[in-house]
Design a protein around this nucleic acid. Structure first.
Lengths: 176, 176
DNA sequence: TATTGTTATACTCTATAACTATA
DNA sequence: TATAGTTATAGAGTATAACAATA
């Protein structure tokens, strides 16, 4: 538990973080805005998935996801196949062109971060990753559980630096 | 210097941070969106200032600042006085009602953060603040050079003394 | 009746450019 | 001519609600 002045300072940092996001957005390809980049990156990381799963990973409403996905499909970077198991669903999959695009996004962001964080050590970057990962977990799926702090699994210590794999069987969709 | 996979992981955390911002935005008063809250908070922290200074602190274009300020003025939370020294400029100042609003914003954000970060220690929160402050500095933020700190508190910069990339890149203006 | 996904609408934030009024 | 600020316009991101198709 922290003090109120500490929370105010944290809020200022959260607000100021927008400048970092915008700078990262500026170096993206003009036909691949942030929403599209997020879709491609998540599909590359977690593999084929349905719209609902992608919406959960993006932590946005499915209507927003649908809009982003439509843009990416128009560019030919992913394809929407009907799900044979459930004809309401559609399976999203990266195309070869999409993988090329993912590589380009990775290259650009790595270049900018390598420049801006040139005086950061590996350990410092890893620490920031850990804290932001935990922050996200603490705010967790507050859409799925607005007022119930699920005491089942609360990570106290920061996770592994890279954390390459996540728990994906957790199918908490926006509850009606 | 870090590796590319580390940068990719950092990018994912940056992207996922949007969910935290949106959650914080939801608990704000409906007539005080994020832009207005940022204006009020900065005026409370740094005291009276001109539009250009506020734009620099917000790290957005002055046209954006003007729009946010107009909204806040409409609500009666700040007032725009002509600058006697330069009739092109306008001095921004919090009104008593604005201070009340700042207090309400502070109360709401502190309440949400206290709930979500209930299992974070003081030191962990301080560490996150420190790293995000340094991140902002690494991306060349202008808030490292504060104007006139308000009597209440002095902006503390917990990061190591290293020079930002471009000290004064006043990109708060459309190039003429 | 419930769920998956799409579309329509509205709102916020942002940048660019054109404009005014001062300097 | 240059600067401080405003306004118009456009683009991206998001949420809500209404809708169609399927379970």
């Amino acid at each position: 538990m922290a003090e109120r002045t500490q929370y105010e300072e944290l809020m200022r940092q959260f607000s100021a973080f927008g400048a970092v996001r915008r700078e990262l957005g500026r170096i993206m390809p003009s036909d691949c805005p942030g929403g599209s980049a997020a879709v491609l990156t998540l599909l590359d990381r977690y593999g084929d998935m349905r719209m609902s799963k992608l919406a959960e990973l993006l932590a946005v409403d499915m209507s927003v996801t649908s809009r982003h996905v439509a843009h990416v499909v128009d560019r030919g970077w992913i394809e929407r196949s009907p799900d044979p198991a459930d004809k309401r669903s559609r399976i999203l999959r990266l195309t070869p062109g999409g993988r090329v695009q993912v590589g380009e996004l990775s290259r650009r962001t790595a270049q900018l971060l390598a420049d801006r964080l040139s005086d950061w050590s590996d350990e410092e970057v890893a620490l920031l990753i850990q804290l932001m990962t935990r922050l996200r977990a603490s705010f967790g799926d507050c859409r799925a559980a607005p007022l119930r702090p699920a005491a089942s699994e609360t990570p106290h210590a920061p996770h592994a630096p890279h954390a390459p794999h996540h728990e994906l069987e957790h199918t908490t969709r926006t509850p009606a």
